[in-house]
Design a protein around this nucleic acid. Sequence first.
DNA 1: TTGTATGCGTTATCAC
DNA 2: GTGATAACGCATACAA
Lengths: 339, 339
Amino acid sequence: MARHTVYTIATDLGISPSTVSKIINHTGHFSDDLRKRVLDHIKSIGYVPATSARVLRSRKTWTIGVIYLEESHIGLEHPFFSGILQSFKDEVEKKGYDLTFIVKQVGTNEMSYLNWCINKKIDGVLIVVGSHNNPEVIELVESDIPCISTDVMREHLHTIISDNDQGIRLSVEHAIEIGRTNIGMVSGPLTAKHFLYRFQKLKEVMNEQGIPYHEENMISTKGFGYTSGYEAATELLNRTSRRPDMLLVGSDLLAFGVIHAIEDLGYIVPKDIAVIGYDDISFARMSKPSLSTIRQNIEEIGKIAAEKLLDMIEKGLKNETKLTRIPVELVVRDSTKTQ
Amino acid sequence: MARHTVYTIATDLGISPSTVSKIINHTGHFSDDLRKRVLDHIKSIGYVPATSARVLRSRKTWTIGVIYLEESHIGLEHPFFSGILQSFKDEVEKKGYDLTFIVKQVGTNEMSYLNWCINKKIDGVLIVVGSHNNPEVIELVESDIPCISTDVMREHLHTIISDNDQGIRLSVEHAIEIGRTNIGMVSGPLTAKHFLYRFQKLKEVMNEQGIPYHEENMISTKGFGYTSGYEAATELLNRTSRRPDMLLVGSDLLAFGVIHAIEDLGYIVPKDIAVIGYDDISFARMSKPSLSTIRQNIEEIGKIAAEKLLDMIEKGLKNETKLTRIPVELVVRDSTKTQ
DNA sequence: TTGTATGCGTTATCAC
DNA sequence: GTGATAACGCATACAA
């Protein structure tokens, strides 16, 4: 574990430090013989360039920052987001990049996301969970640092997200298929744009299909968790004058709460009210009744996000407003099985 | 966003760079006046020291590496492990440390965990999921880099883990309480030492309590997931000649599989067979029947791990064999409710 | 094809 | 109390 540097290696081999450096970085032309000698020696002593020096000099860190949690108290525990993160991680690792969580202090100084990134010379940023009007996130997106999002949608930001149009459409078509046209929706918090968007889309699709849209059967939750779903569904069912026979829910997690609320009110899923979730987290198939849902292609979202971000980093592209939609898939399970 | 350095700041203020540095780092003695002037100016221009240069010079990175996934295909999605990670992260962030996943390449060179850490000058390592006989993990643990584990147990490693003795004891006592003494166990894979340990402990406790221990009612799973639990339970119930009336399961995730296997074989939980899990992940209370379980204090495990590791880092302590047990708690839900 | 000199931005050492 | 200077380990422009 003696400290090796390009200097010690150069001395060992009787050559110059810059030769070592160039061979390591595949720059310049050298005899195959010399190259082999250097590479072999490096491998045998287990040398690896000191990142800090390399970064200081060349301004590339091979590091991607992750903005993970915001006001919304979703943590790493959330299966959907952690799934995306996992897939993203797998992809960037292949290319030699490394992930780090963006926090707002270095050592003991508080600082903004942007400053943090500049300071750490982060190559790029993944926004997994953010909020579209957080000033610090905006500042970051408007900067020269390549950003990609799998959540927030904004100007000057490329967002990779499920095709929500298709998701809503599939849900409604499925409802019609099983003969349910009194459709309601329990959406996630409207602070997230795509929940808002899904409401609009639902209205649109129902119109197209000639199904009446009743405002009283639409509700949005306060939070992202089970309890939020439970509470919203209870409220909806208690207040409505025309009980829906099908509920579209913003996420599987919420859907579990919704189902239990329905059951606690004495109704049966799916006989009285069918329920379809969104996400297809692993527990969807383990619950009783198992949950029909719109499967988001988490792996693909993470993978595409990684590809796009690395592309921006490597080609030095600037952030631009863009939306990439990843197809979703209808998964029919017991919560919408009628007969 | 002009580049600031200690030099530009020094020039701005008409003082010397080293003075700036010392004030930032709280070293040396300066007039309150000067200190205030420097600090104010720094804040106003949003300056922050360049980490790479700082690291290059001072050999401290304020960065902790996380070893997360190994042969076992548990990803970030696993609620138990991601919960620990979250809690650990919250704690170290408070102290200004920052997390990064340990991967085996930097740029384009493959390397061992140890080399990676040396190269990145990582201050310490958290092993959330590893395997106790992975040579690279061993190498790391035996090095000078402070390590802490919430999973692997080994020589020269401090492990923070739930009090499994207590967990088994609580489970068995609960079984007795509800009048179930034909106890079986579906453990997780024995490649993880603590599952092995829990078997031994179960035998011990059952002996103490004068309950017969039947080898045929004990089984370990192949993996960590739902399906593994389902398969193991199916096998156990098909082969045993004295069907257990209570099953202790290695994790909640496995337990869901176990319960469904039981039900698919035509038995009722908890009437015929009561089931108790381990972990208390959030879905435990959402499932039907809701799952009785041994709650691991995830938050505490992560927090203590963080504290201990930072302590080692800051005091320059060496790795030592140690086991810190965090108390667990019995949570009774429907899967063990009889009457 | 190989070597020399310099600077990246800090902090540590020593001097004043 | 404050400042000058060297060194951390590397990559690059330039020289040979």
